[in-house]
């Protein structure tokens, strides 16, 4: 059977890498066109167009963190290194998307609320989740032994997701005011006319980019593994030859 994610050699590109890059390239112009043509909000003005990048980035980041925990759990169950590679890739791409989301958010906040940051429920919750997964990457970077690093990271990634509902409760308790706009569901009439399609396209584009970066990062993990194996082998042969 053709393997979609693992190419036959570590240098070759897997089918998934090609598919996701085609998706990204196809979606990008459609999204850009839709954003450009979207109507300008009568209340917020042009700054409202951040809707087509900021919430999609947030969805992508959450998707990354959920994938990290899921692949971590799969690794603990099956103990196959590929699940650990997926978990690491998902965490790294998730942290990237979360960073971009945390950068674009304050820009909208400055333009609309007049201040960069507020300790709103959703902002605080996301910031904490961000710190958890930054710590996750640090833990991976500083752990000795790839098998041990994988186990620790899997546990920590799961713990990071478990703490989300607790944090939510905690921040509500401390009176974090909900300033952040509520969830927008396409189909509700909260979104003005003509705003749904660029928003949905934005979400699809970010998900496609997430998948593309994820697959590429995963390929990098496999390639690194192959290099280390090759180098170890040639070193062993050197030792044997002398």
């Amino acid at each position: 059977m053709l393997n979609v994610f693992d190419a036959t050699s570590p240098i070759a590109r897997a089918p998934a890498a090609r598919l996701t890059s085609v998706l990204c390239i196809g979606l990008f112009p459609a999204w850009a066109f839709a954003v450009f043509n979207a109507p300008i909000d009568s209340f917020q003005g042009v700054i409202q167009k951040i809707l087509y990048i900021h919430p999609p980035l947030a969805f992508g980041a959450y998707l990354g963190f959920i994938c990290t925990a899921l692949f971590g759990a799969l690794y603990l169950w099956k103990r196959e290194p590929r699940f650990d590679h997926w978990a690491l890739s998902a965490a790294e791409v998730g942290v990237l998307l979360c960073t971009l989301m945390l950068l674009t958010g304050p820009i909208w906040g400055k333009g609309t609320w007049g201040r960069w940051w507020t300790w709103d429920l959703r902002l605080t919750l996301t910031l904490l989740l961000y710190f958890v997964y930054v710590s996750y990457l640090l833990l991976r970077a500083f752990s000795e032994g790839s098998e041990r690093a994988a186990r620790f990271a899997a546990l920590y990634g799961i713990l990071g997701l478990v703490v989300v509902p607790l944090n939510r409760f905690a921040i509500e308790l401390s009176g974090g005011r909900a300033l952040h706009p509520a969830n927008l569901n396409p189909g509700d009439d909260q979104l003005g006319a003509g705003m749904t399609s660029p928003f949905v396209l934005g979400v699809l584009l970010v998900f496609a980019c997430f998948a593309w970066l994820l697959v590429r990062r995963y390929e990098l993990c496999r390639l690194r593994e192959a290099v280390l194996l090759q180098e170890a082998e040639s070193e062993r042969e050197d030792a044997w030859a002398t």
Partner: peptide, 11 residues
Amino acid sequence: LMLPLLLPILL
């Protein structure tokens, strides 16, 4: 590692 997880306890 521990501080990002401890917010609910501390709050």
